[in-house]
């Protein structure tokens, strides 16, 4: 077990000595920026019974702040690549030559994934702070973390991004093909989760999916015009997310430990 810290550092070094991480970071921040711009533009606009709050209200900050959680897909892709590039470029051979106890490699990758997810969450939160706070202040409102439940939502963003990185690593270990893994991640989060968490009639299923559980964790109560969602209680959302993390970690370990590397 004393090997673990070195192995985690090696995994982080693998990621940070190639280019993908900063491309993903830029895309992540661009997406958050796009959502925030959209919410600013439509602040105070109501339509079909649903309404976007005014920019100077705590409710607007709450909704805007929560957009950070929607970037889970990018850390998930990063997780997929952390695993599948080892197979794509056959660096897995060198990795296992240095550390033939493959379980340790998987544990190190998952821990590195958690760290990467947390770093991305940190970047997103900083980005949100430097855009949302001035926007609210300029609109004549007062940025109130407690009224907008910023701490709880931030925690939800950190939990979502760290766990999505773990999902990605597990998915990558299962699929091993890089393109296949990325496509599966996109289909999962945009199509499957999108449908089941976006359409209220399907929330009965959607609340049990990672995205639904993440929403529960943040307790975002927004009527998008399709009706109010019914999420799990926050603590149950947290449990569901951790459960998914454990399942994906187990998948990563089980599909990697005994397989022949030829």
């Amino acid at each position: 077990m004393s090997l673990i810290p070195g192995l985690v550092r090696a995994e982080l070094r693998k990621l940070f000595t190639t280019r993908l991480w900063w491309i993903m970071l830029i895309v992540t921040l661009l997406l958050v920026g796009m959502y925030l711009g959209f919410f600013m533009a439509f602040a105070g606009v109501s339509q079909d019974g649903g309404a976007m709050p005014e920019l100077d209200t705590p409710q607007w900050t709450e909704i805007a702040w929560a957009t950070g959680a929607s970037t889970g897909i990018f850390v998930m892709i990063l997780g997929v690549v952390m695993m599948t590039s080892e197979y794509r470029y056959q660096t897995i051979t060198g990795t296992f030559l240095v550390t033939p106890r493959r379980g340790l490699v998987i544990v190190a990758k998952l821990l590195a994934g958690l760290i990467v997810g947390a770093l991305f969450a940190l970047a997103v939160l900083v980005f949100e702070a430097v855009t949302v706070i001035p926007a609210v202040t300029l609109a004549g409102g007062e940025f109130s973390p407690s009224a907008s439940r910023v701490p709880q939502i931030s925690l939800g963003i950190v939990a979502t991004l760290t766990l999505y990185a773990v999902f990605g690593i597990g998915l990558g270990a299962l699929v091993r093909n890089q393109i296949g893994g990325i496509v599966a991640a996109v289909v999962w989060s945009y199509v499957i989760e999108g449908i089941f968490t976006g359409i209220p009639a399907l929330h009965g299923v959607g609340k049990w999916l990672p995205a639904g559980a993440a929403q529960a964790l943040m307790s975002i109560d927004l009527d998008t015009g399709l009706g109010r969602p019914e999420w799990l209680p926050a603590w149950a959302g947290a449990l569901v997310l951790v459960g998914y993390g454990l399942v994906f970690a187990a998948v990563a370990a089980a599909t990697t430990v005994r397989r022949d590397i030829t």
Binding site: A10, R13, T17, R19, T91, G94, V98
Partner: peptide
């Protein structure tokens, strides 16, 4: 057995760290 985007030194340093 190399990632094409990684430099030779970084490839070896990853292995050293591990």
């Amino acid at each position: 057995n190399f990632h094409p985007g990684r430099t030779a030194r970084n490839h070896l340093r990853v292995l050293c760290t591990a």
